[in-house]
């Protein structure tokens, strides 16, 4: 797909496209084209995109079914919030640092949980991650410094649209480059056939834990953003329900499609807000969607298709050259190359 010589060009193209998208978002928000409330909705859209793409790494690309993603998110959220509340540094320093620490804490938990759990496969892995997710929640509920059942209050509101945007871009870029790398191919080979991968000399445990902790890291970052957006945290927000909500986004978009995760995370975050009366039925629609999509299109809406700006522009270009059609660019997504 990607030849060596145009890699640099593609990076440039995607950087420009990302900057343009950022400019467009900021313009729309600042000029008041969309109201203040809808502008604030971009933040949940952002952290949900991070959650969905990170879960897609372990569910779609690694081919396992972890059911404790909300647990990692909660670790990131609490670590980041407790850090920024404890230290006395300017926001521009402590917030990125807090996000990073939150992510690292979640990734460490990912390794601790992943090492034993990933020895199991399929159903058992799903159950053991579910168990860990519940244990994390119960522990947070019973600790003193996390505020217990009352939750953690007074977290500074640092999460802004540019911060979320940067985090989303970093997440998508990092996961994309991981998947396209040598390590990524090893991860994909485990999904295709674990026994064959092992027979070909791939250390399946190493790569499983790698993908799992990567996925946990970004879930932790999303948790940090979430904490500093809501400014209040309660263990009830991170139950099994939340894990399933993230899973729905991934499954609906397509297991193994970054673009699918981005689109479905955006749609499923915005839909209930756009249709106000609809919110009561949200979870019913969610669960129905899950069942219907699984029965009729088990690979999700986009399957394993991924959007590539370079390829699409190339195609449009070739159409343009052949038929002299008017230009139809500007449909850029955040997906890289």
């Amino acid at each position: 797909m990607m030849t060596k010589k145009n890699v640099g060009g593609r990076y440039l193209l995607n950087t420009v496209a990302t900057c343009l998208l950022f400019g467009a978002i900021m313009l729309v928000v600042e000029s008041g084209l969309i109201n203040r409330y809808m502008a604030m909705m971009l933040i949940p859209v952002g952290y949900n995109i991070i959650l969905a793409t990170s879960l897609n790494l372990s569910a779609g690309f690694l081919g396992q079914l972890p059911l404790g993603h909300a647990g990692f998110m909660s670790i990131g959220a609490y670590t980041c919030a407790l850090f920024t509340m404890a230290v006395d540094m300017p926001a521009a320093v402590e917030f990125p640092l807090g996000l990073l620490i939150g992510g690292v804490a979640a990734a460490l938990c990912g390794v601790i949980i992943g090492l034993p759990a990933l020895r199991l496969r399929g159903d058992y892995l799903a159950i053991i991650t579910l168990g860990f997710g519940e244990i994390i929640r119960v522990i947070i509920l019973n600790l003193d410094f996390t505020g217990g059942a009352f939750g953690l209050k007074g977290i500074p509101k640092y999460t802004t649209i540019p911060v979320v945007f940067v985090c989303v871009v970093i997440t998508i870029f990092a996961i994309h480059t991981l998947i396209k790398s040598r390590h990524g191919r090893a991860i994909l080979s485990i999904r295709e056939d674990e026994i064959a991968a092992e027979a070909s000399g791939i250390s399946t445990t190493y790569y499983k834990v790698l993908a799992f902790s990567f996925s946990a890291f970004f879930a932790g970052i999303a948790g940090g953003l979430y904490a500093h957006y809501l400014s209040i945290l309660g263990p009830a927000n991170f139950g099994f329900m939340k894990s399933v909500e993230i899973l729905v986004m991934v499954v609906l978009g397509g297991l193994g499609s970054m673009m699918g995760s981005v689109v479905s995370a955006t749609a499923l975050t915005l839909l209930p807000e756009l249709l106000r009366g609809f919110s009561e039925y949200r979870m019913i629609v969610y669960s129905l969607l899950l069942v219907i999509v699984m029965i009729f299109k088990p690979s999700g809406l986009f399957g394993r298709y991924d959007f590539s700006l370079g390829d699409s522009l190339g195609k449009i270009g070739s159409i343009f050259r052949r038929k002299k059609k008017p230009e139809q660019g500007g449909e850029n997504d955040e997906s890289d190359s």
Binding site: L65, D123, V244, I284, S287, L290, V291, M294, I295
Partner: peptide, 11 residues
């Protein structure tokens, strides 16, 4: 199948 089961449960 597992995801469908979760879906039914939530439904």
């Amino acid at each position: 199948l597992l995801i469908t089961a979760i879906g039914v449960s939530f439904l």
